[in-house]
Design a protein around this nucleic acid. Structure first.
Lengths: 196, 196
DNA sequence: AAGCTTTATGCAACTAGTTGCAGAACCGGT
DNA sequence: ACCGGTTCTGCAACTAGTTGCATAAAGCTT
């Protein structure tokens, strides 16, 4: 139940149309709460009919016509309420870790390439975050809002740093394994599931 | 599309009934791929009708009666296929970071308590992981399967370490902010959304 | 043996997120 | 003025995950 609040936040930062929101989700907000344009349009409709946002009155709002929204007081209040409320963390889901665990049972064949690809992706993301930090948070700018936003960015940077390190380590480990066993570790499951 | 593979992995490690699987998901597998008993029962049915697993023939399988499953060769093959195949990482979703960003706009009121609660949860999880490491990976045990499983556990430990550190830092930062502004930073949105 | 609790399996309905497609305006070039 | 690509909005159908409840057997209690 966070998408509407992600949208409210984005709209408070700057009133936007559906597509503008989509683009901003692809850049900044989407780094920790991604959404497709479909979700966004649907949610905008819902938020409007709930009276939390409204379409800025401009040109006639026809199909294929840009339509910008702004947050109403009720929307700001709802966002404040949600921000203050406690929430339990969502259960984790990480397919890569799961695959590593599966590899312990069925063998590591084919894993290396994908680990490398992930490493590359995380390196890129890290570089992007660092670029943003350089651009948006030069030493000096540190009003309350900046400090909070910087904190969030730091989480992103540190997370990507963690993943690049871990993936590099994992890659070395997996490479070591396939070297020893000649391509696949325990691909017959011996040692874990004894043949019956 | 990872749940069936999580189940196959778990069943290869040890044939189990639905409830046993559920419990094991709550402990080890669920740390990086959680699932409710509902998902598991449904998926077991699907996997069985697809011929990837089968019910161990034992007592008559009536309702309210334990029914254990084991993986068939086709299931092992499917798991190996999936493990080897490359997959794009799922888009990130982190409600806490989102809330911090919202707080930059609507104020930090009420955040501190919840940050503290999250810190506590992550500390507990970290302690649990470290306990598992002590118990299951004493120095010496390092066959191929152990190395891979240990690698996964290390990811968990390092992630939780990261979060506890970051949360402690965030908590200090937020406390500093509310001290300066008297409880809420920029709760009227000034500075970000100039009043029109 | 009658009732209560726990264990185990499962159905049905719902919410959130994804994918594929389509239609209207707008913006160039010819 | 017409055509073709791009922008912008949106519907419909699907997949994955969650919540609430039902039902059957087994074990314990009196």
């Amino acid at each position: 139940m966070s998408l509407p609040h992600a949208i409210l936040t984005a709209l408070l930062e700057k009133p936007s149309s559906g597509l503008e929101l989509t683009r901003r989700f692809d850049r900044s907000i989407g780094y920790f709460w991604s959404a497709t344009h479909q979700q966004i349009y649907r949610e905008l409709g819902k938020l409007e009919s709930d009276g939390l946002i409204r379409a800025l009155p401009s040109e006639q709002p026809a199909r294929g016509q840009k339509k910008a929204y702004e947050v109403l007081p009720a929307g700001r209040a709802e966002l404040a309420r949600w921000t203050a409320a406690g929430q339990d963390p969502k259960p984790q889901r990480d397919a890569l870790l799961l695959r590593l665990r599966a590899a312990a049972v069925v063998g590591t064949a084919g894993l290396e390439a994908d680990l490398g690809r992930h490493l590359d992706l995380h390196r890129r993301q890290l570089a992007e975050y660092e670029e943003i930090e350089r651009r948006d948070f030069p030493p000096g700018r540190d009003g309350p809002e900046d400090r909070l936003r910087h904190l969030v960015l730091r989480a992103g940077i540190d997370l990507e740093t963690f993943w690049t390190r871990w993936l590099a380590h994992a890659l070395a480990e997996v490479a070591g394994l396939s070297e020893v066993t000649g391509g696949t570790a325990s691909s017959d499951g011996a040692g874990t599931t004894p043949p019956r």
